[in-house]
Amino acid sequence: MTQLVLAGVIGALFALGTFLVLRRDVVRVVWGVVIISQAANVYLVTMGGLGGGVPFLPDTHGGGHGGAVNVTDPLVQALVLTAIVIGFGTTAFALVLTYRVYEEHGTIDMNELGDSA
Rank of each mutant, 00 (worst) to 15 (best):
T2P: 08
L4G: 13
V5H: 09
V5M: 13
L6A: 08
L6Q: 09
L6R: 08
I10E: 05
I10H: 08
I10Q: 04
G11Y: 03
A12P: 01
L13I: 06
L13F: 12
F14T: 10
F14R: 08
L16H: 05
G17C: 04
G17R: 02
F19R: 01
F19M: 04
L20T: 00
L20V: 00
V21H: 06
V21K: 13
L22F: 12
L22D: 06
L22Q: 10
R23P: 00
R24V: 07
R24S: 12
D25M: 02
V26C: 00
V26T: 04
V27S: 02
R28M: 13
R28G: 10
R28K: 13
V29W: 07
W31I: 13
W31A: 11
G32I: 01
V34G: 04
I36Q: 13
S37G: 06
S37H: 14
A39F: 04
A40W: 08
A40S: 11
A40P: 02
N41E: 04
V42D: 02
L44Y: 05
V45C: 08
V45G: 01
T46Q: 13
T46F: 15
M47P: 00
M47H: 02
M47Q: 09
G49K: 01
G52H: 07
G52V: 05
G52N: 06
G52S: 05
V54K: 08
V54Q: 12
P55F: 06
P58K: 07
P58Y: 03
P58C: 07
T60G: 06
T60N: 10
T60Y: 09
G62H: 03
G63W: 01
G64D: 04
G64T: 06
H65G: 10
G66A: 14
G67V: 14
V69N: 11
V69K: 11
N70L: 15
N70R: 11
V71I: 10
T72K: 12
T72F: 06
D73R: 03
D73S: 09
D73A: 05
P74Q: 03
P74S: 04
P74I: 03
L75T: 11
L75K: 04
V76M: 00
V76Y: 00
Q77T: 03
Q77E: 07
Q77H: 11
A78R: 09
A78Y: 05
L79H: 00
L79A: 03
L79I: 01
T82V: 15
T82F: 15
T82A: 15
A83G: 09
A83M: 12
I84Q: 07
I84C: 08
V85E: 04
F88W: 12
G89C: 05
G89A: 05
T90S: 10
A92V: 14
L95S: 02
V96I: 14
V96Y: 12
L97D: 07
L97S: 10
T98I: 04
Y99G: 14
R100E: 04
R100A: 06
V101D: 00
V101Q: 02
E103Y: 07
E104T: 15
E104N: 13
E104W: 12
H105T: 00
G106D: 01
G106Y: 01
I108P: 03
I108H: 11
I108L: 15
I108G: 10
N111S: 09
N111G: 06
N111Y: 11
E112W: 09
E112R: 14
E112A: 15
E112V: 09
L113D: 00
G114D: 13
A117W: 07
